[in-house]
């Protein structure tokens, strides 16, 4: 049986996530898969994703993976990365596409008018690079990671949720935005742990051994 299934719906580079999980959890079986039955049977599920959310939602549906992903969010340790976080919400401004609606809220673009530093310098979009992630809650996936560690981000949209109890971390660009959410067996992040050096590898290692109550 597959320990960790990385859901492959044709959107971008999954090698990094795969290699990073193999690196932190040697001996466990990690599969990159587009087969819903493998996702259904896996002990843990990772949904990465990059590019545009409308394309991601389209590919997820047409490849028959949407039900398996929704099922995983209800039944087993689930890690969403980047678009894998955004798709958990109700809708996205990007292409006005509907998400899976598992968590309340929507995905919005960085407001061009707000993108300046206090010194008046322009802040660029995409938000690209290493930003501080301020943990809002204690969580097994944060174990061993400093409460303000830097992770690697690259995105132009972020999630805006009215349910503040699901917020696991925030970052500033320039205003605070939600960059990680947690609810029951779901943990999802806007940044890329697979590209975030020691802090990112620690988070993935934590996920590989996380046993939430379900």
């Amino acid at each position: 049986m597959t320990d960790i299934a990385i859901v492959d719906y044709g959107m971008g580079n999954l090698r990094s996530v795969h290699k990073a999980l193999e690196h932190v959890a040697p001996g466990i079986s990690v599969a990159v898969t587009s087969d819903p039955s493998v996702v259904d049977k896996a002990r843990r599920v990772v949904v990465p994703g990059q590019g545009a959310m409308p394309n991601c939602m389209y590919e997820l549906k047409t490849r028959g993976l949407q039900d398996a992903v929704v099922q995983a969010t209800r039944s087993k340790p689930f890690l969403g990365i980047c678009i894998g976080l955004q798709m958990l919400f109700e809708e996205s401004e990007e292409g006005h596409v509907k998400g899976l609606g598992i968590l309340p809220g929507k995905v919005v673009h960085f407001d061009a008018k707000a993108m300046t530093t206090p010194e008046g310098l322009k802040l660029k979009v995409p938000h690209m690079g290493w930003n501080q992630v301020y943990q809002a809650i204690g969580h097994p996936l944060w174990e061993g990671i400093p409460k303000d560690a830097r992770f690697y981000f690259v995105h132009s949209y972020y999630v805006d949720t009215p349910n503040t109890t699901v917020i696991a971390a925030q970052s500033n660009y320039p205003f605070p935005f939600t960059c990680a959410v947690a609810k029951d067996n779901i943990f999802a992040v806007q940044f890329h742990p697979e590209k975030s050096h020691i802090a990112g590898l620690t988070l993935l290692r934590n996920f590989a051994k996380w046993t939430p109550c379900i």
């Binding site: 530093t117 802040l123 938000h127 690079g129 501080q132 830097r150 660009y173 320039p174």
Partner: peptide, 8 residues
């Protein structure tokens, strides 16, 4: 604190 400048 915010986004770090990168060295590549």
């Amino acid at each position: 604190m915010g986004l770090a400048k990168r060295i590549i």
